[in-house]
Design a protein around this nucleic acid. Structure first.
Lengths: 202, 202
DNA sequence: AGAAGAAAATGAACGGTGTTCAAAATTTGC
DNA sequence: GCAAATTTTGAACACCGTTCATTTTCTTCT
């Protein structure tokens, strides 16, 4: 028989488990994910999950990495050259992704490592896609800013937009009209860009 | 014996349980909260928790309501009359509270109802303190805006600041210098206020 | 091809979780 | 004091992620 049959099957099981977890999280949310369900979905024994992955956290991180990759791909296309317009594009694309893939998107931010183990380094690096594309337009708006500073500003911009999208989707406040997230974000980015243009570097 | 002994004792147990849960969440975070620990802390049987509260969710919501009340109290003092300065005050106070009470603050946003039961109405209303104080300065910056619109803008402002504080405290991105949250927030609010002043109403 | 060794699959069992509930203890009204 | 109403109790339950001795499958070597 072929020499690589074993690793091949192993990779296949991994893929099936990640697929199943992705479907389950997408349908019912991270909190409803069950190891026994995944084993049934993937057609393997309960214990087999722990041959393929360190633990459930590891598996969840693989799913989240996929979602992050999709987010990165979505933002990586060449967009508007005007930095303000580009930032608006990115914000709207992020909001659209969150609206259309709510459970998978939420899993990225809801997940916490079991016990108090640290998040693995490889996964933390996957998160970079969330701010990578923001750096360039910010650099255009703030020429002369060091890369180090640009990253901090990009992170702040992302965080602000992320917060708006998150709170809007969470529906945390009663009595507030179900605002149009898209319109609200457009206004917000407009205000922000105007503010950046009218504020000297510091 | 006194007629009201029963309700009195019941209220006392409730208080002791909320106290214990508050201490546990504050020290170790929401995820580490255990019903059996609380029973021991409060000096009651495990099952007694379910005489005092509907379930653990109910108890957690009481703790969160306390935290929200503290947040509300913190923001309710009369502050700067200049709207921009006032917004900056509020943002910095929020960041300071989150930094000094990280676990209790995080519990407000991490908690999800078990199963898929809806969040009780009374608790959703407690969340209003997060945006109440933001309305007035925004009204000064945007005279002629209807109350309905003001609430939406206030929520957006809160969400943006909340996002910045959250992502900063979560330490989600590697390679980005541990930025000074306070300085970053001050800059952000400055930019925002400048932007609002330079952007016509819509 | 067949045996031997290595790797992977299996699922019962383990410790831990929130929650329930019949029984015991307490408090209340008379 | 006594009976009824209420509360307290903690063992038991269902379910969770995880482990591990056992069985099965795959790989390699002769």
């Amino acid at each position: 028989m072929a020499a690589g049959r074993r690793v091949e099957k192993r990779e296949d099981l991994k893929r099936r488990l990640i697929d199943a977890a992705e479907v389950r999280i997408g349908k019912s949310g991270l909190a409803a994910l069950r190891a026994r369900d995944l084993a049934e979905d993937a057609g393997c024994a309960l214990g087999a999950i722990y041959n393929a992955f360190e633990d459930m956290d590891d598996l969840i991180l693989r799913v989240n990495a996929r979602t992050l990759a999709r987010l990165g791909q979505m933002a990586s296309g060449t967009g508007a050259s005007d930095p303000g317009a580009r930032l608006k594009e990115l914000a709207l694309a992020y909001a659209a992704f969150a609206s259309e893939n709510t459970n998978l998107w939420a899993a990225i931010f809801e997940h916490r490592m079991a016990g108090d183990r640290p998040t693995p380094e490889w996964y933390l690096q996957e998160n970079a896609v969330l701010i990578e594309q923001i750096v360039k337009p910010v650099a255009k708006l703030r020429p002369g800013l060091a890369q180090r500073e640009l990253l901090v500003r990009a992170r702040t911009l992302f965080s602000a937009v992320h917060g708006i999208v998150t709170i809007s989707i969470e529906n945390r406040f009663v009595g507030i009209p179900a605002a149009n997230l898209k319109a609200e974000l457009e206004r917000f980015v407009d205000v922000l860009v105007t503010g950046i243009e009218g504020t000297p570097d510091r």
